[in-house]
């Protein structure tokens, strides 16, 4: 069996830490900083890789739910949006490539903007409902995204910072238990 991702990542980190970084000219601050960022990135990828497909699956489910909610409050979904929602709902099968999930998610994000801008142009209830839908989606999405990127050391809200598996479990619970309601 081929060495798994964890083993391969650990040996790359060890090579950097034990051999390559000590060999860098101490005056070359650019090379030293970048090699440390490389080491940090490898460490984070080692933590993330077990959850990568689950992360993209949850992201897609979450965006599908947002598009459904936005469409409910802004008239019937356009054929393109309805098609995207159907694609998103069908895509989370076990044999779908992770990159394919990400591609649909990106298309959904662009579609959400069109509906949000249309709601803002209408104003009133349509705008308020779309704002609330986006805030609800963002709270769940940011819990997951902040957990995913915590290793970079930028987060300043420790009281709401979750581990990667916990954030994914919370998101799965959200998307499976609270279906959008008629506005």
């Amino acid at each position: 069996m081929s060495p798994d991702f964890d083993l391969r990542t650990r040996v790359m980190m060890a090579a950097l830490e034990d051999v390559i970084i000590p060999a860098i000219d101490p005056k070359n601050s650019l090379a030293i900083e970048q090699s440390k960022l490389l080491l940090g990135n490898l460490g984070m990828m080692r933590d993330q890789i077990d959850y990568y497909h689950a992360y993209e699956t949850v992201e897609l489910a979450s965006l599908t739910k947002l598009l459904e909610t936005l469409s409910l409050h802004n008239g019937p979904a356009s054929p393109e949006t309805a098609g995207l929602i159907a694609e998103g709902s069908a895509a989370a099968g076990p044999v779908v490539a992770t990159s394919a999930l990400r591609k649909i998610s990106r298309t959904m994000r662009e579609a959400a903007r069109s509906i949000i801008d249309a709601a803002a142009a209408k104003g009133g209830d349509a705008e308020r409902e779309s704002q609330q839908a986006v805030l609800a989606y963002s709270e769940e999405a940011l819990t997951r995204e902040r957990a995913w990127t915590a290793g970079y050391g930028f987060d300043v809200f420790p009281e709401t910072l979750r581990s990667i598996p916990t954030s994914l479990e919370l998101a799965q619970h959200e998307t499976t238990t609270s279906a959008p309601r008629e506005g």
Binding site: A120, V134, Y137
Partner: peptide, 14 residues
């Protein structure tokens, strides 16, 4: 942008 963020659209309109 590499991908859109719904919160950014809402923020810009506000």
């Amino acid at each position: 942008r590499l991908e859109d963020v719904p919160l950014m659209a809402v923020a810009e309109n506000w």
